[in-house]
Design a protein around this nucleic acid. Structure first.
Lengths: 210, 210, 210, 210
DNA sequence: TATGAATGAGAGTTCATTCAT
DNA sequence: GATGAATGAACTCTCATTCAT
């Protein structure tokens, strides 16, 4: 089963992906400027000259890497969400959390948007298009439906952003503290869901709060 | 009133601060690695050499700058919050929002924590100690009190983090998109507050939601 | 008549020549150092590797190219020159001018001698042996004969070099300005010939000039 | 009298000139592409970083060097030429020859025009403006006057270029062979002058030559 | 205190050359 | 014979840092 040697053609098709994966790690650790092309090369056991066979500049490596990791968060659209609107929203949020904790790529895209967005504006667009907007749209759709059928109370406009916010905040925590530390994620998620459900619920006693 | 010439002593006391302010701007725009000591110097009309009179290395400039901008978010502790727990929480959150929109320093500290935290671990500590923890503690205190006196429902533990989250998410948006774009902040804040109040309210009908 | 496919043997025999022709163009445009082996290859629709099948180093390509283009200026010896010595000289000079304007190879050899002669001393020898000396010898022979039979006046020694000089100067102009610009060549040639004839003529009034 | 140490200010004013002089030598020996910035630096005992304090790119060093060496050949205009037109022309040509043999700068400018003119078009302009045109203009002026007063015969138009040509051809010889070889310059000059005088002389016997 | 010329250790990039396919 | 992926040495250019003035 072990195939140490790939054919030339296989190797060639693989190289750009290997490079971008290696670049991903280096850029995360060092940032764009501090990352060295040679270190990217070392990670996959080639010399820096090889990198330049596939990409003309370090900038291009970075941009290509962003495109490489920014796979659209399709699950958010394709996943069939069942049950009441509450249940759908709950499923959607859980889907998001799984996505962070499992997929560094999407999470690190946020880091790049924050740290390199000024120099790579495309990054910002990519981040919003691939991650933020899909989630916001789906969320808002569920809320709207919930409000329409009377399952959720009607309220102030940009609800979706607020409802999604704890998920974003957790991404930030993971980015800063790393995913090996215990951030109390399960309890946090529970709290988030609990809160969302209460916040959206049609309640009689809430009239006087605001 | 115009004081064109400062005494030498004043000048001397001022320089480090000028440098750190200039460094702050450069590090935001370029990041630690890409920022040039010479550009920091240019911003205050001196030359490279002068910077090294006050700081031994670029690393030191960065660290000192972080300490310089990370003024503890004291308002969060000193401000007298009046009224019911709801009102106090509301005041606290509004205080936070004012803090983002008015004070780039605290906001950019978050950027540095995300972008340079790996290389400057102190940054992470600073960010949590100066910004995150004070807010969380005060928030939690209010919630606890609210629960104790029956104003808020009792719920799952890390409530404070969830309640603060929309504020964090907005910081991230401002970091990524800049503060000159219209991010719909007033409405967002209203939505956040509205949501928090409903989520914490003691409601009768919410029993079946989760 | 159309021969799209050459036999392998023909192809093989052709390649080195194709390469040297392509190399000639590249070396003219860029000079030895700046010319890229890959660009030479592109010109004939092959890849770098192919070049190295035929030539071991870039230096060798250059040297071989020089040998390739430095076809001895045989016309200058073989051409039967008829008529008086004046007429012969006139024919010889016209032959040289045709040679410049029609044949870039010889002309560019001069460029290489000037620009790369220091690093490729053989170039200098080649240039003198293939171009300069044949012309000088033939010229001097005609002059000597003219002087001997009293058709030309006798004069100072290195006449041939001086007589040939305008032709050299025109080569230089073409090298510098390119052969697409109008350099007034026909008139220049006329002037050159006119001048040579007067300069060599046995005159009575010229005694006092020097 | 020996001053090993110059003041800072003196040193600084000197540096660019030192660099350009060193660059001149390197560019002559190696050509633009093959010349190394580090070698230019070594020649004046500094490191390559120093070069970049004064010039932003190698291209700029080259261009600045060309401007540096291309001092207009003013002697050709300012020198008072006395005597008959023949004598003036003779003096002018001798002036040119002195200029080649004494001043490498002007001579090497011709080499650069030939070898790097394609990539640095300004070089060509400079060479013509600073060297070629001044000589041609002055020469033509003398010829015209000589013709006007009947000292020279009238002839075909671009006489000046032809008359100057032997001087150009000798420059080329020196460029190719170096100025340490014995090129028989004195005799060549004598022959050139002799030829020019005969070629321009008003002669009775020359009618049948062309 | 401030300067800025000089340094030198890199970093990005290029390209002649090799060699397995 | 032809390819082109890979190499690695070399080169240009950058910039944090030093230090004499």
């Amino acid at each position: 089963m072990i195939m140490k040697k790939l054919t030339r053609a296989q190797q060639k098709a693989l190289r750009p992906i290997q490079i971008l994966d290696a670049a991903f790690e280096e850029f995360i650790e060092k940032g764009f400027s501090a990352a060295r092309v040679e270190d990217i090369a070392s990670r996959i056991g080639v010399t820096k000259g090889t990198i330049y066979v596939y990409f003309p500049t370090k900038e291009e490596i970075f941009s290509a890497m962003v495109r490489h990791i920014a796979v659209p968060f399709e699950a958010v659209h394709t996943n069939e969400l069942n049950g009441s609107c509450s249940e759908q929203l709950r499923s959607l949020l859980l889907l998001c959390y799984e996505h962070i904790l499992g997929d560094r790529r999407t999470r690190e895209l946020l880091r790049f948007a924050i740290s390199e967005g000024i120099r790579f504006p495309e990054l910002i667009d990519t981040h919003y298009q691939e991650l933020v907007e899909p989630i916001l749209e789906r969320t808002q759709a569920i809320i709207d439906e919930g409000v329409r059928i009377g399952e959720f109370r009607s309220g102030t406009a940009p609800f979706a952003r607020v409802i999604i916010a704890p998920f974003v905040a957790m991404m930030v925590d993971v980015l800063i503290l790393g995913d090996n530390r215990d951030l109390g994620v399960p309890l946090y998620i529970q709290s988030h869901l609990d809160f969302v459900m209460h916040g959206l619920a049609v309640s009689e006693t809430s009239g006087s709060v605001e």
